[in-house]
Design a protein around this nucleic acid. Structure first.
Lengths: 336, 336
DNA sequence: TTGAAAGCGCTAACAT
DNA sequence: ATGTTAGCGCTTTCAA
């Protein structure tokens, strides 16, 4: 494998000039640049990024940790991150944690070990060292941003929607359709997003003077199957419900399956509303009414914030709230 | 940020000893190791992976290029890759190409620039430099393996199922149910997998002495929407079909939507069979009959092959074929 | 505009 | 079992 010395020799210049021709072309005379380019082409030279990174203390990569890559929710966000990253010469390295602390830590370590310049977290889990870090310092000591999620009690910069408001809007939509017996399938109780979405549900009911009934609330874990199970339970314990608000679209999909298995009709008998507006929401039967998060924009904003932090140092506790939107499809209908 | 020198000084040993204590513990006396560990803990030292990689000419990472991360098909494969990679001390870095040659090239370059030791390709596109490479050399000059896909005319090691046979099995399933007017929604014509799946369809028809009717064949591009469009066309041009074989599950989902919009019933009026068995196949309405690829096993085998190649050098043109399986659900039924 | 040379942090060959 | 030191390939200061 050719290295910078080989190029210098072949081109008859110093290694410094080769380096400049590559990274700072305007510091080099055109004629020299051409000779260097020819040599580079001849030997198919590729600069060693490890050496360059070691010298510059910079890798031009950022790591994005995703709990599960197949989760359709993340794809738009990652796309947004990549849009901005690539435009600024950064590579985006995706790591799948599978919600496993060890894997998560292993990807997060890439920042400590200089393989990456920053860390974007798309799940609700924190790397071990960051927990310790944040107990001692006010702001994280490495560049990190959370997208969509946030962490109660820790000042990690984050970009997301107002989940309480969005959940209120979803519930209001059902109330406006005349529903009173509105069930709720939440995510895991420990998850801040789950809590917010439940809070919004409660707030909307309260405002509409509908009494909270705990038998209408079931807990899932954001998976399709958990939505199915939760809905099965609800169908047994609160058969008079006319609508259900699921804290994400996957659980809504599972809930719809449970409803159909009871020979009930989605919308006509029980309205279903989801959360996130993932790609398949349009292809469920019937198409799913849901809350749309501005995925790509969240990703783009997250990466911009990352750039800012990693260039200008950590900021004050920083959160950016983006607008959500209710998407009406046909899984919700007026109560009859 | 503490470096190895700081640790050496604090522990009162040489840098070599620190390095050994970390990487080759049994070459170091227990007592010394303890002193070193204490120093490391005190300064929260993390070895600089760039320096280590530069010195060892190795990054202990491999890049996996995925066309689109949200594509549910890849998740199991990536999981398989990660299982083996992590067990061998490798990191898996995911790059999303979005079928964009530039992005693809940018991730593939990580191998040339030593940021990664090998490349796993999960799409049908080849990095630019590899095309050139393969026109000159018999085998690729960097460690690369393709999973699921392969490339006609190039000897790139790959792991996959026999798509012709699997497609034959899918078609035979429909024939066995009594269908004769069997439509086909293919992937892009240029894709080798598409071609194979079409070939299997034709082979099965031929064997059953059913005449091939080109008005029963429509082309999609593996997306849900393209399946929807293709099915709409078929419904117009060949309304007497009783079954359709889609070259992947996404297109099958789109086709089902088109069928329902015509007020026809999936299975009862038109049987639908997909390909891949992605997670949502179980949650379509009705649940989708499909061909299951052994996702995780493909991933694991791919990574093992990668390890072999990167440790022992390139092999002879190498392909590994894994078994597929027909999954019967309720989207296919006997013709009535 | 170009070159010489130091040094980023680590590993491994060699010496003890 | 441990220390000394060269050098991985690059960038950047300083000097010319």
């Amino acid at each position: 494998m050719a290295n910078i010395k080989d190029i210098a020799k072949l081109a008859g210049v110093s290694v410094a000039t080769v380096s400049r021709a590559l990274k700072k072309p305007d510091m080099v005379k055109k004629a020299t640049r051409d000779v260097v380019s020819a040599a580079i082409a001849e030997l198919s030279y590729k600069p060693n990024a490890l050496a360059s990174g070691l010298r510059r203390q910079k890798s031009d990569s950022i790591v994005v940790i995703v709990p599960f890559i197949q989760n359709p929710f993340y794809s738009g966000i990652v796309q947004g991150i990549e849009n901005i990253a690539h435009a600024h010469g950064y590579k985006v390295l995706l790591g799948e944690s599978q919600n496993n602390q060890k894997r998560l830590d292993s990807y997060a370590e890439m920042v400590m070990t200089k393989q990456a310049d920053g860390l974007i977290l798309l799940g609700a889990m924190l790397p071990t060292y960051m927990k310790n870090d944040l107990e001692e310092n006010q702001t994280p000591s490495i560049p990190v941003v959370m997208a969509c999620e946030y962490f109660d009690g820790f000042d990690i910069p984050n970009v997301r929607i107002d989940n309480v408001e969005a959940a209120t809007a979803a519930t209001n939509h059902l109330i406006a359709l005349g529903h009173r017996r509105i069930a709720k399938i939440t995510g895991p109780v420990s998850n801040p997003l789950s809590k917010d979405r439940l809070k919004g549900y409660k707030a909307a009911l309260k405002k509409a003077k509908i009494k909270l009934d705990s038998s209408l609330i079931a807990t899932g874990e954001f998976s399709v199957h958990s939505g199915y199970k939760a809905m099965t339970t609800l169908l047994n314990e609160a058969p008079d419900m006319t609508a259900v608000f699921c804290s994400n679209d996957e659980m809504a999909l599972g809930a719809m399956k449970a409803i159909k298995e009871r020979r009930l009709r989605v919308a006509k008998d029980i309205s279903v509303i989801g959360f996130d507006n993932v790609w398949f929401a349009e292809y469920t039967d019937p198409p799913l009414t849901t809350i749309c998060q501005p995925h790509v924009e969240i990703g783009e904003t997250t990466m911009k914030l990352m750039l800012d932090i990693s260039n200008n140092g950590p900021k004050l506790p920083q959160k950016i709230i983006l607008p959500h939107q209710l998407i009406r499809r046909s899984s919700t209908a007026s109560v009859t």
